[in-house]
């Protein structure tokens, strides 16, 4: 009886510690994912409109991320991968009704199970 009570107590403590560690790890991954997504989007915004399109479908495996210029991400980002999607779209100004053509640039950073951070930016097509 006493052993059972003791076992239950130990298991409860271990479960709560494990749960807290898991939450902390997830939180850390999400922050790192935000850095990576924000960084790639900022890099893409320095490119010419038509050069951004060339990155549609780019995907970096988990642990293999690098900057657009080929600089490897440090080991801190070992659990993260990233992909880029560029899609044609239009945006209509509500007040004037003017339609602006451009591209939606979407950067998603993921781990083995889910997307952790997704950032999207609209880039208007330059005037001819």
């Amino acid at each position: 009886m006493a052993s059972s009570v003791l076992l239950v107590i130990v298991l409860a403590v271990a479960a709560s510690v494990s749960s807290a560690q898991k939450v902390a790890w997830e939180s850390r991954k999400r922050m790192l994912a935000t850095f990576a997504a924000d960084g790639m989007l900022a890099e893409l915004m320095t490119l010419d409109y038509f050069d951004i399109r060339d990155h549609d479908g780019d995907e970096e495996d988990i642990g293999e991320m690098e900057t657009i210029d080929g600089e490897d991400y440090p080991d801190t980002f070992w659990a993260l991968g990233r992909d880029i999607t560029v899609t044609d779209t239009t945006v209509t100004d509500v007040d004037t009704g003017i339609i602006v053509a451009g591209i939606d640039v979407r950067v998603a950073v993921f781990d083995q199970t889910k997307d952790l951070s997704i950032l999207t930016a609209f880039v208007a097509e330059p005037a001819p």
Binding site: F35, G39, A42, E43, M45, T46, T67, Y73, P74, D75
Partner: peptide, 13 residues
């Protein structure tokens, strides 16, 4: 020490 990489971008370069 933990290493973080931050991208510095200058869109108005």
């Amino acid at each position: 020490i933990e290493e973080i990489l931050l991208s510095v971008a200058l869109p108005m370069h």
